[in-house]
Amino acid sequence: MYCGDSRGTDIDHFEPINSSPLRTFDWMNHLLACSSCNSNSKRDQFPCDANGTPLLIDPTIDDPYDHLRLILSTGFYRGNTPKGKTTIDVLRLNRGDLQRGRELAFPRCQAMLRDYLRMQDSGNLREATKMLNALQEQPFIGVLHAMFRTAPNPGAEIVLGGAEVLEALKALNFYTG
């Protein structure tokens, strides 16, 4: 739920038991997380602002892209808000393995989108559907979501890696610009 690496092995209490014992068995307080994010980074940290508002992105209610900006070419996250900056710091979202994984996921997404478009255009719908399923089930799916979010912006064709990638996003109806 945090880093997007798809290695979820732990159940994290979003609001830690020591600070919110009444949420111990609250289903919406249980998030699937990798052990690195849960046990090594977040642990029992739960920073709040002066008003008591949590400064971590809650993936059950917050849209991460309101708080984070992914630099697609490098896999680096930047915080757009205090909540985004704190989440990056506490969960160490820019640690080397994650940044590298996102950096490598970007050209993989580009290639898969181009392949999807070619299969779709040639009428090979069965293979196009397989490619779309593979694209949606890969690690670092947040890269694909960032690409969708980038598509309507000016200059998206350059950032996303060409007209074919942008056209594939349009064909998937994720972008209607």
Rank of each mutant, 00 (worst) to 15 (best):
I88G: 13
G101D: 08
A156P: 04
E127T: 11
L72G: 00
C109Q: 03
N124P: 03
K42Y: 09
R108C: 04
G162W: 09
H13S: 13
A163E: 15
F14T: 06
L55F: 02
G52M: 11
Y175A: 11
T60V: 07
L31T: 04
H67Y: 03
I158R: 03
N38W: 08
L144K: 01
Q136M: 08
D89R: 15
P21T: 09
K83I: 13
S20I: 02
G177K: 14
D89N: 15
S35C: 14
F25R: 07
D89L: 15
T150P: 02
T74R: 00
L113A: 03
I11N: 09
S41P: 01
H30S: 05
A33T: 14
L125W: 07
K85S: 12
Y116W: 15
T24I: 05
H13G: 13
T53A: 10
N51Y: 04
Y175R: 12
F140E: 01
L113Q: 09
A128P: 02
E127H: 07
L93W: 10
T9I: 08
N94S: 08
L113T: 09
A105R: 11
R118T: 13
C48H: 02
D12Q: 09
L160D: 00
I71F: 00
A163N: 14
Q99Y: 00
L70I: 00
M147L: 05
I11R: 10
L135M: 13
Q136Y: 04
Y116M: 10
F25I: 06
V90K: 10
K130D: 09
R118Q: 14
L68G: 05
K130S: 13
K42F: 06
V90I: 15
F106Y: 05
W27R: 05
Q110S: 10
E103H: 07
T150H: 03
I141W: 02
R100Y: 12
I88V: 14
E167V: 00
L113Y: 05
D97G: 01
D12S: 01
G8A: 08
G4K: 06
S122H: 12
P21W: 07
G123V: 02
C3G: 06
I11A: 12
R102K: 10
D66T: 12
P107L: 06
V143E: 00
T81W: 00
L70A: 01
G177S: 15
R92Q: 15
